[in-house]
């Protein structure tokens, strides 16, 4: 592979900076909310999304189709959310039991989200069903796009979505 010249590298860096700014302005808020629905701990959603932005910025020069930067960003958010969930599961296994009088979760926006019935119901779904439901009904992605992000087939997305919706319907009166 030919070495990239300094001028070319500078151009890519400028391009990546501009893309980062545009993607932030347009999609940061929705991606944080997407991550909040995928994670068990809403407080981690911003960290996950910021990591995703940094990774996309670092990989900007290697992106073959820059029009798909948002799709890449979403996929990175989903992947990082999965990794975070796995780490949290391991940490929870080894965490000491909380004291009976431990302080309640922080008040504010995050605690409101934590208390939402639909969020609690989502967390009881298997991970893939939760991802399919969130990508299809929160991110408004097509089955094909959701399949691409989840790394599975369209048929699997259909099945996960259907099962997830059924499970949520049994838990949430609003969906019946």
């Amino acid at each position: 592979m030919p070495a990239r010249s300094d001028a070319a590298r500078s151009a890519v860096a400028r391009d990546a900076d501009a893309a980062l700014t545009a993607l932030y302005a347009e999609h940061y808020r929705s991606l944080v909310r997407l991550a909040a629905l995928l994670l068990d701990d809403v407080g981690l959603c911003e960290e996950v999304v910021q990591d995703a932005y940094i990774r996309v910025h670092a990989a900007w020069g290697r992106l073959q189709d820059r029009d798909k930067a948002l799709a890449y960003l979403r996929q990175t958010v989903v992947n990082l959310a999965r990794s975070t969930l796995r780490r949290r599961l391991v940490a929870l296994k080894h965490a000491p039991k909380p004291m009976p009088n431990a302080a309640s979760a922080e008040e504010g926006a995050y605690s409101l989200v934590e208390r939402a019935a639909v969020v609690q119901a989502l967390r009881e779904l298997p991970r893939r069903q939760r991802e399919a439901v969130v990508l299809r009904y929160y991110a408004d992605m097509s089955e094909a796009d959701a399949a691409a992000v989840m790394g599975c087939s369209v048929g699997s997305v259909k099945a996960y979505t259907s099962r997830g919706l059924a499970a949520l319907s049994s838990k949430l009166e609003d969906l019946r």
């Binding site: 909310r33 809403v42 995050y110 639909v118 439901v133 969130v134």
Partner: peptide, 13 residues
């Protein structure tokens, strides 16, 4: 209805 619930749930963020 699920779509509306999800959007409403994360609206405070």
């Amino acid at each position: 209805r699920l779509r509306a619930l999800l959007h409403a749930a994360v609206e405070p963020i």
